[in-house]
């Protein structure tokens, strides 16, 4: 019943390869037409390079990448260090938010009373734009590094919390009945049954929160922060290096993609025995 014939496996593998080749080809085609449209759209301007052309942006990309590891602080720092600084802030703020929001979400998802008591607070704070926390954070914490992390924390917290609660609510109630009939300890019930069962909701929350956090850090760093992708964008803009914006967008986008893909792998982390 479980032994698939070897031939079947081969065919499946071949089909998968063909499919991957097709999507890769489509991607190349799409990228090529995108660059072509970009070229046509920017070729007409005689504005001294205000609108970045693909060629100029490509050259700038090579420049930025070739000096990626330059480390000559305080004023000359390669893009790798900017990226690392942003990632560090996101990991700290997002990680702390996850540490608070997941346990709290498990609690609120299982306890109607506590949930109803806290829900108005969550609903009021949730729609607040993360950047609105920035002046408040700066006034309270008096430290730009801590403020940037605080903003990321606030941006992630509600998303993870709401999705965790939702994930817990969607857990098959029979799993909890099972845990009860087995007289499972609280730790086993929460960690071995509730959390894995609610994981789809939790992971959705983490994914959304991480992409939001990544979105917000760039904006936040344009205002505070001595290093980071936002600082890079801001500095390059103020030096009127518009081509660098394209490089920054590329780096930010690719990093966002990698972050999202890696957090999606959390599905695999459900604890076994």
């Amino acid at each position: 019943m479980t032994t698939t014939p070897r031939a079947l496996q081969h065919r499946a593998r071949r089909e998968r390869t063909v499919f991957q080749l097709k999507s890769a080809g489509g991607m190349v085609l799409f990228a090529a037409s995108f660059i072509a449209i970009w070229h046509v759209a920017t070729a007409g301007y005689e504005d001294g390079g205000l609108a970045p052309t693909p060629l100029a942006s490509g050259q700038r990309l090579i420049e930025v990448l070739s000096s990626a590891f330059v480390h000559n602080p305080p004023n000359e720092v390669g893009i790798v260090f900017h990226l690392a600084a942003s990632l560090q802030r996101v990991v700290l703020g997002f990680g702390m938010a996850a540490l608070v929001a997941i346990p709290l979400g498990l609690l609120l998802g299982t306890s109607r009373v506590i949930h109803d008591a806290l829900d108005p607070v969550i609903q009021v704070l949730r729609p607040v734009s993360p950047l609105a926390w920035l002046p408040l954070g700066l006034a309270l914490l008096r430290d730009s590094q801590a403020t940037a992390i605080f903003v990321i924390f606030m941006a992630s917290l509600w998303i993870i919390l709401v999705n965790t609660i939702d994930g817990v609510r969607r857990v098959n109630p029979l799993y909890l009945d099972l845990a009860r009939t087995l007289e499972a300890t609280t730790a086993n019930r929460v960690l071995r049954v509730l959390l894995p069962a609610a994981l789809p909701g939790v992971v959705t929350g983490l994914r959304t929160a991480l992409s939001t956090a990544w979105l917000v850090i760039v904006a936040a760093e344009m205002i505070v922060g001595d290093r980071g992708m936002g600082t890079f964008v801001w500095t390059e803009w103020n030096a009127m290096n518009i081509n660098s914006m394209v490089v920054a967008i590329l780096v930010i986008g690719v990093t966002g993609l990698v972050l999202d893909r890696s957090i999606a792998q959390l599905h695999r982390l459900i604890p076994a025995n």
């Binding site: 845990a179 087995l182 007289e183 499972a184 300890t185 086993n188 019930r189 071995r192 076994a272 025995n273």
Partner: peptide
Amino acid sequence: QNVLFALQAHG
């Protein structure tokens, strides 16, 4: 693992 979980869930 499902059977084992039942055997050890109560600690």
